[in-house]
């Protein structure tokens, strides 16, 4: 299948999710369950995508784990998105270098 088919499918689906409520359905959602469900979706989805994938996204599981720990600690301390992202990257590089030296 062409990559353009995938990209078009992604883009159209995402756009429809945004545009239909903004143009046609302008009434608020009444169902408390549905509102609660939508409130929790981003957290569930981001967590499921991050773990355990982050562990296997780098050369070794050790550097992936280092990135995870550094990011969680900094995010817990309320650091900005950019700081956390860069620190996670730095953790991977430093861990990989240390592992090469130790070997």
């Amino acid at each position: 299948m062409s990559i353009y088919t995938y990209i078009l499918t992604m883009a159209v689906t995402t756009y429809l999710i945004r545009v239909i409520p903004l143009t046609i359905f302008r009434k608020p959602i009444r169902s408390r369950f549905l509102r609660s469900f939508l409130h929790y979706v981003p957290y569930a989805c981001l967590t499921a995508m991050t773990f355990p994938a982050i562990l296997t996204s780098t050369a070794t599981i050790i550097s992936g784990a280092a990135a995870l720990i550094v990011a969680v600690v900094l995010a817990y301390r309320g650091k900005s998105l950019l700081t956390v992202s860069l620190a996670a990257s730095a953790a991977v590089m430093i861990t990989e270098w240390v592992l090469i030296i130790v070997k």
Partner: peptide, 13 residues
């Protein structure tokens, strides 16, 4: 890994 870092920074606080 930056992208994962961003996801973590969004969900932890």
């Amino acid at each position: 890994v930056m992208l994962y870092g961003m996801f973590i920074a969004i969900v932890i606080p």
